[in-house]
């Protein structure tokens, strides 16, 4: 293991469908391309909603079961899970977070995926999930390159690092 060997390729797995589940993978993939690192994004399980047409513009923050969540801001009071379950809470938290991201020029998910695609990263969906959810290629955004089996994903990731998010 050589500590100073630069990273030349990453394959990032996005397995969760919440806003905080999807964005880190997108930021990492985009950041990789900006550094000249080859990048692949692989969406699986609920993470698949990140690349589903008419759904990936409605991705929300999970306000339930998130003990780190605070209101009204990151240094505010802890939000009890029961409050997080009140209708509209997730929408409000999502709205606030989107507003903050807009300020620092992090694009909305559909636009971000276009940017990542144009940057030359591969965007893939997991075959097992596609079958399980009864989806076809038409259900996906045009930037989704291909539905891959896990075996094909490993082939595609050859010679690089795999990051699971």
């Amino acid at each position: 293991m050589t500590g100073s060997q630069p990273i030349s390729k990453v394959s990032i797995v996005v397995s969760r469908g919440s806003l905080e589940g999807i964005y880190p993978g997108l930021i990492m993939a985009n950041g990789a391309r900006m550094e000249g690192i080859e990048a692949n994004l692989f969406f699986t399980f609920f993470g698949l909603y990140g690349v589903l047409k008419n759904y990936n513009d409605k991705i929300r923050v999970a306000t339930v079961g998130n003990p780190a969540m605070r209101v009204p801001s990151a240094k505010g009071l802890p939000m009890p899970t029961l409050l997080g379950a009140i209708p509209g809470m997730s929408a409000i938290a999502t709205w606030m977070m989107n507003k903050e991201m807009e300020k620092i020029d992090i694009p909305p998910i559909p636009e971000f995926l276009e940017m990542i695609h144009d940057a030359g990263a591969g965007i893939y969906a997991c075959k097992a999930t596609v079958d399980m959810f009864h989806l076809t290629k038409d259900d996906f955004i045009p930037q989704m390159d291909k539905v891959l089996t896990v075996g094909e994903f490993y082939e595609q990731s050859a010679g690089g690092q795999i990051i699971f998010t």
């Binding site: 550094e35 020029d105 694009p107 940017m115 144009d118 940057a119």
Partner: peptide, 27 residues
């Protein structure tokens, strides 16, 4: 400016930036 600002304000598409400045366009 970041990539998004280059796109939106500068009117320069992502693809063009990667073609003009390969392997790390903004850097």
């Amino acid at each position: 400016p970041g990539m998004r600002r280059m796109n939106k304000v500068g009117g320069i598409p992502t693809k063009d930036l990667y073609e003009l400045f390969p392997n790390g366009p903004i850097k």
